[in-house]
Design a protein around this nucleic acid. Structure first.
Lengths: 204, 204
DNA sequence: GGCGTAAGCAAGTAACTACTTGCACCATGG
DNA sequence: CCATGGTGCAAGTAGTTACTTGCTTACGCC
């Protein structure tokens, strides 16, 4: 890893902890293990460094897909939610910090939002696919339910550690519980389809 | 309004926009219309000013109640959600900023969370009352559904302006849609009870 | 060996920040 | 009438920040 990447990584870490103003070039340089002058020689200015940071972040944010051919909606959505939640949790300091500075520097938060926005679309498309492909019957308010599920993941990721009382489920069980409530709200019922038998067919 | 209150109001406004580091004593004094020295004479230091701020905020955060004797669950919850959402929206800059600085100054965010925490309890109690008083049948996962509804309100308040794509409903209709999804998830069905034919019940 | 390039180091600059000091002003009230 | 307390104003202090400059060192390449 060259100096440029080392500085970018350090900047992300320091920024997530201290915000833009608190992320001094000195702190970043120390965290990166390079001389402060190298930072300026590489990026020109602190502002330019953060522009590069946002670009590099947007480029490497992984968004998990949902299967094109749904088979087991509950399991597929639970796995997907767990993966999205994990990603949000890992980046929660960064997300919170960038959201906190929306008023002064909106670009950072907008970069952070590309992922969740995309995830919302993926989930909506998946649910509509469930319906159109006859995998499940659905008759609820899809856009609202999707918005609520995404907000649940987002809220869980960024406020569970601050406000544990609001999240009674343990972290590990949260995705499956959210998905079950979500499916119930949409009236998801397996249509005529062979359900994999290993998972006891639990007709509720 | 005396100088003390004027400074506190100014500090809240400037802090919400610029964060702790960005809320310089100079900016606050200008916003309050007082001399910077007055600020130090009144509070002693910037840190002490912000301590006072947090206390005064916690003291004056209004939390709407839900009726002790539920009559029309959907309407009561919709009104309540609308009021909670309005409050969160009005304070969204403050909430976002304090959340953004959790890593450095957790107290601020904790103060902000008292309201939502309390609101979650109020809603949970209300739903349990619906059930125990026989106003409605309920058979879903109450804690999870409540967490999701609260996250929906929270997420709507703080990310709608940054990420409009995630909130397809117009602001005015959001509370009623959230509540409808919420009720559906809980399987809320009016129990044997005279349901008001028109809205002219004039109960409250 | 010579040479260009990337990096470190020490020092400095101008702007800003929290906070202080000293003094003048002014309304109140005994 | 004068003391007192709250306020404004001008100036200053010490620390920090982004950014610069000048010099030195080390490494790869011809």
């Amino acid at each position: 890893m060259d100096n440029r990447d080392r500085i970018l990584n350090a900047a992300q870490k320091v920024y997530a902890q201290h915000g833009f103003r608190g992320a001094t070039t000195r702190l970043i340089a120390i965290e990166a293990g390079v001389n402060e002058v190298t930072l300026f020689r590489t990026f020109g200015s602190k502002a330019a460094l953060f522009e590069a940071l946002m670009q590099s972040y947007a480029a490497r944010s992984p968004i998990s897909p949902l299967p094109d051919n749904p088979i087991d909606p509950e399991r597929e959505m639970t796995d997907w939610c767990a993966s999205v939640l994990r990603h949000l949790r890992e980046n929660r300091a960064l997300i919170r910090t960038s959201f906190g500075e929306i008023e002064e520097r909106p670009e950072a938060a907008v970069s952070m939002c590309e992922g969740p926005n995309c995830a919302g679309t993926i989930l909506t498309d998946y649910v509509l696919r469930l319906k159109s492909m006859g995998v499940a019957a659905i008759d609820g308010d899809v856009p609202t339910a999707v918005a609520m599920l995404m907000s649940a993941l987002f809220g869980d990721a960024i406020s569970r550690d601050v406000r544990p009382a609001g999240f009674p489920q343990p972290e590990s069980e949260a995705p499956s519980k959210y998905v079950r409530v979500f499916m119930r709200a949409l009236g998801v019922k397996p249509a005529r389809l062979r359900v994999p038998m290993s998972q006891s067919v639990a007709g509720d």
